[in-house]
């Protein structure tokens, strides 16, 4: 593998082939009841497995051609560069942000009322219903702003907080029935 594009094309072809095979051999037979054709009340119908089987077969074919091509030919490698550090950091930011969004509301309510009232009862009551969204949301905005500009600034914190509160108000004030994240899941 002397060419970075070549490695990536090979991996891509292998991933396509493997996922198509898994779909064809394991997933579709195990998770669809009616087969490619289906006999129902003595008439033959197209079964639920027809479309996914065709799709997976197409993926398999495309993957095979791509793999062979990647091995035989030199790819015209105009690939973007993927940075593993960036990937790991952004996954962490998203995971932390979503966890904060879901956990901070119930946690703060539990602290405040020492367990007497549950968050479930307050999820339509201000200011409790905003807690999770504002903490989690501004965390995400701040982290990505700081990450992409490579510096910390209190101005970023302020901007993240203000824009999150604005977003919360845009959705919450005009619409009675909309629930901000994570209030629909509590």
């Amino acid at each position: 593998m002397d060419h970075p594009g070549k490695l990536r094309e090979t991996v891509l072809g292998l991933v396509a082939i493997c996922s198509a095979l898994v779909a064809l051999v394991v997933w579709i037979p195990a998770d669809i009841d009616t087969g490619i054709v289906d006999v129902w009340r003595r008439t033959i119908r197209i079964g639920d497995a027809m479309l996914p089987s065709f799709a997976a077969a197409g993926m398999l074919l495309a993957g095979l051609v791509m793999l062979v091509r990647a091995i035989v030919l030199v790819p015209n490698g105009l690939h973007r560069v993927i940075s593993p550090v960036f990937l790991v950091t952004s996954c962490l930011v998203m995971a932390l942000g979503l966890t904060l969004m879901q956990a901070s509301g119930p946690f703060i309510v539990w602290l405040w009322f020492s367990g007497e009232i549950s968050y479930r009862q307050l999820l339509d009551t201000a200011p409790w219903k905003y807690i999770g969204f504002v903490i989690g949301g501004s965390f995400m905005i701040f982290c990505f702003t700081a990450l992409t500009s490579h510096r910390f600034s209190w101005r970023f914190v302020f901007l993240a907080l203000v824009s999150t509160v604005l977003i919360a108000l845009i959705y919450d004030l005009p619409f009675d029935n909309l629930l901000l994240p994570p209030n629909g899941d509590i």
Partner: peptide, 13 residues
């Protein structure tokens, strides 16, 4: 502040 918010919540409920 704390009592005020708690009272408001209780009143709504």
């Amino acid at each position: 502040m704390k009592t005020l918010l708690s009272a408001a919540a209780a009143a709504i409920l």
